[in-house]
């Protein structure tokens, strides 16, 4: 067993091999493995966070739902109140209107009665004059007796 120049050759081969393996495999592979490790950790953390977020979202949704329910109940109560108010208002307005229509009708009736009475009165005066003419057998000057006739008509 002897030491020969092969020793130096083997040392050179070893050095070159270490340098080569370091560059082409060791470093890229460790980098890839570390990157993967990080990504897995990140993914797990994200999943954990997602679960928490989901829990939070569910609570929030429940809260919103309860709020909406309360609001809806309030709105319904207000609507009912408003509806009864409207009904009351309408009732009042209708009563008023009816009163007004009745008053107008009464006034018209009154007017008609007055007008009829006036007409009648005028006719009565004419009839009275013509009746008196017949009785007296002569023509009465309506102008001359206008005052007497008006008094008569007013008494009717």
């Amino acid at each position: 067993m002897n030491i020969t120049a092969t020793l130096i050759g083997q040392m050179l081969v070893f050095m070159v091999l270490v340098w080569f393996v370091k560059g082409v495999m060791w470093e890229p592979m460790l980098a890839a493995m570390n990157a993967r490790k990080e990504r897995i950790a990140d993914g797990l953390a994200a999943a954990e966070k997602g679960l928490q977020d989901e829990e939070l979202a569910r609570e929030k949704a429940l809260e919103e739902l309860n709020k909406a329910k309360t609001e809806a109940a309030e709105i319904i109560a207000q609507a009912q109140k408003r509806a009864s108010e409207i009904v009351e208002e309408a009732k009042g307005a209708a009563t008023e209107e009816a009163g007004r229509v009745k008053a107008a009708a009464d006034a018209e009736i009154e007017q008609e009665v007055t007008r009829a009475r006036e007409g009648l009165r005028a006719q009565v005066a004419t009839l009275a004059v013509s009746g008196a003419e017949k009785i007296l057998g002569r023509e009465i000057d309506a102008k001359a007796h206008a005052k007497a006739l008006d008094d008569l008509a007013a008494q009717i």
């Binding site: 002897n2 030491i3 020969t4 120049a5 092969t6 050759g9 083997q10 081969v13 091999l17 080569f20």
Partner: peptide, 23 residues
């Protein structure tokens, strides 16, 4: 015991071929 004028070709060939396969 240490003769640096000699080089073992078989050792060098086999180890370099194996280093090449590894590389």
């Amino acid at each position: 015991i240490a003769d640096f004028s000699v080089i073992h070709l078989d050792v060098m060939i086999v180890s370099i071929v194996l280093a090449g396969i590894f590389a």
